[in-house]
Amino acid sequence: MVVARLSGQLRKLANGREEVNLAADDIAGCINSLEQEFPGAKERFCDEKGELLDAINIYINGDNIRSLQGLSTPLKEGDEVDFMSAFAAG
């Protein structure tokens, strides 16, 4: 299991919840799991081609996935995945 954490207004996607525990092998799987639990979540993170939107930053244990392997970045047990508006780091 990993912990998906939603910051700021992104919490609305999960009915106000800040943290969601879910099973996923990589970031794409994490987003798909969120979509299953909270329909509509995926379109806040990805475009129609499935690419990560510029307006979203995703971090694994604090590291931006854009400097890792993007949506294919693997996850391991206990990882913490943070979803934030990219405008936060301004």
Partner: peptide
């Protein structure tokens, strides 16, 4: 503090350059 993301300043500068996410928004 639980939610966290590390951002390099070079990434922030890129966003404030022409065509960057922050600049255009």
């Amino acid at each position: 503090v639980k939610a966290k993301g590390w951002a390099y300043e070079r990434e922030v500068i890129e966003k404030w350059l022409p065509g960057g996410l922050h600049m255009e928004r």
